[in-house]
Design a protein around this nucleic acid. Structure first.
Lengths: 190, 190
DNA sequence: TACGTTTGCCTAGGAGCCCTAGGCAAACGA
DNA sequence: TCGTTTGCCTAGGGCTCCTAGGCAAACGTA
């Protein structure tokens, strides 16, 4: 009757990512995505093998988008400026795209990642950033983990309302960045 | 036929928490809990209003357990020792009880919290801990957020395998604690 | 232009889950 | 001893995931 929507794996995944940002990643459902296209749910299964795969593809998409943002934010900066740009890009992505950001948390083996067409992320802009702080292994790894943990924890608590206090979260954020910079600058050894 | 299992809201919630630790919080299902008791799923609805409420109750239970652990860990300690004990209690709870820990992330209004019988958590042992670092508001709040973010982010990334590097995570953990202590000791102002 | 072939969405249907309504028997209180 | 309450039951509706098989539109080829 009506014209065919012209689905494809990419369009389905994009719609799922959009939906995830709107209603939450774990409320993303094959049926709901199908409804968005005005199509029966069974029709999506020629583009995506299962709900599980759909979610994994959203995760890959989101991880690449995040890496892209962080990558461009870092270009031409170093030291504290780089750190700030990194953190700002990270946080803004998470807040603008809560569903996508949540998707990144699901665990994917490197093989599965490649199967789904995920590109290399250069093992992370994090190490590039930390090079500017003059760390050597294994301190670099420890510092990288510390940095990512703090950023991830911050946006996660912010999203989930874990910061109940009347002081607005954006007011605390710069302090966190200052603390982070200081910690990385004087990373404790021994 | 067989004797009645003798269900109750508390037993159902406890079983759900157990199940969450075993199979993951978002795989907790009314049917599965019912199966565990050898009972039809409809039977649970006299003890728990809905799946949503069941999850909320697990969240309250978990939050109180965590607060209890942290509380006893802090008793009689101060300064860096208190920080270490706090962090260790926090992390060990999250790793031993991944499902419960995950449950805490769900957002509950204070009213809902009270409805479900949640007790006061004294607004947090975090502030008690930070008192030892001589901070004043609003730095205390900022530092508390930083501390919780780092801990939460750390165990979260550790659980989800976000730390891919060959260096084992437990090797990095003490560095993180040292960094945290140093940061809190010299919390940057202005 | 005519005719396979492929593509894209369809209907039908099974299984699992959430949840409501109403029933029946065991346990309890007077 | 006899209501009354309690605790689990069956029945059933609606939504979801996913498979199997069908049909018609679009495409490639002669």
């Amino acid at each position: 009757m009506t014209a065919r929507p012209g689905l494809s794996t990419d369009r389905v995944v994009a719609a799922a990512a959009e939906l995830a940002d709107q209603v939450g990643f774990d409320k993303v459902t094959v049926s709901a995505v199908a409804r968005g296209f005005g199509v029966k749910d069974a029709s999506l299964y020629s583009h995506v093998r299962s709900l599980r795969e759909l979610r994994e593809r959203v995760a890959v998409l989101a991880a690449e988008e995040l890496a892209g943002r962080v990558g461009t934010a870092l270009m031409g900066r170093s030291g504290q400026q780089a750190l700030t740009a990194f953190a700002e890009a990270y946080r803004s992505f998470a807040l603008e795209h809560p569903g996508r950001y949540r998707a990144i948390e699901i665990r994917l083996t490197p093989e599965r990642w490649a199967e789904l067409g995920g590109r290399q992320l250069g093992v992370d802009h994090t190490y590039a950033l930390l090079r500017g702080y003059g760390l050597t292994e294994p301190a670099t790894t420890d510092a990288a983990r510390f940095l990512l943990a703090t950023l991830h924890g911050y946006v996660n608590l912010e999203r989930h309302g874990g910061f109940d206090h009347p002081r607005p979260v954006p007011a605390s954020w710069p302090s966190a960045l200052r603390a982070l910079h200081q910690t990385l600058s004087t990373w404790p050894t021994e």
